Amino acid sequence: MSDAKAAAGPKDLRPIELDEIDQRIVAILQREGRITNADLAVALDIAPSTAHARTRSLVERGVITGFHASVDHRRLGRGLQAIIGVTLRGGTRHDSIVRFADEVRVLPQVVQLFFLGGTDDFMVHIAVADSSEVRQFVVDNLSTQPFVASTRTSLIFEYHRNAVAAGFS
């Protein structure tokens, strides 16, 4: 792991100050992660070398953590999505929380995993073929875990992802 990435790891939660150009880079890349550096430079009215250096700096400082493809799960035969709230048993130790997250987040059905404060300890977003696969996922991967107290499953009828997060426009 690079020193910059280690410095911006989960223990360092201080916000990173971004100037207007950095904010615009983040906003553009959130909307269009595959934009070429040349096109990014044109959109920002800066030199391509400046766009490249600024983007690289945002990655090194941990502001940009990756570039991702948006996948249409229906085209992969996984047209049913669900959010499953998971409550762990009282007194669950840190090791159990970490183990649960490590085991669940790598399952092929899992799109996103959220560790929460509140009624649910985790929200698991899955994409599967049909309702029987939702049931199978809950039974095989959640209910059988000794530290899981309960689950609540909600089907997703429609999903809208904001192109821009963190308040940048």
Rank of each mutant, 00 (worst) to 15 (best):
F147Q: 08
V104A: 00
D3R: 13
A38D: 07
H125I: 05
R78F: 09
N162S: 15
Q81G: 10
V138C: 03
P108G: 00
Q23P: 13
A53L: 15
R78W: 02
E20H: 05
A51P: 01
A51D: 00
P10N: 00
G90Y: 11
G118R: 10
Q136E: 04
R14I: 11
A7D: 14
S131W: 15
L58F: 11
P15W: 00
I156L: 13
H73P: 12
G91Y: 05
D121K: 09
A4D: 14
P146F: 08
T55S: 03
A47H: 07
S2G: 07
A129W: 14
M1G: 14
S57F: 14
L88I: 02
G77R: 03
P48L: 01
Q136G: 00
T144A: 07
L113T: 08
L58A: 02
D130P: 13
R24L: 05
D19F: 11
E20F: 11
S49V: 14
V98N: 10
S57H: 13
R54C: 09
P48G: 08
A82V: 13
A69E: 11
V86P: 07
I126R: 03
V104G: 01
V111S: 00
S154L: 14
S169E: 12
Q112G: 02
F115L: 09
L76F: 05
A41V: 11
V124S: 02
L88H: 09
S154H: 15
L107I: 01
H125P: 10
G79C: 09
L58E: 05
D95T: 08
N162F: 06
D12P: 15
R135M: 03
V148A: 02
G118H: 01
A7I: 12
G66Q: 15
V59F: 14
I97N: 03
E103V: 03
T153L: 10
F122M: 01
A165K: 02
A82C: 06
M1S: 06
E103L: 12
V110R: 00
L155W: 15
A69P: 13
A38H: 12
A165H: 03
R14G: 05
V138I: 04
D22Y: 04
H94V: 14
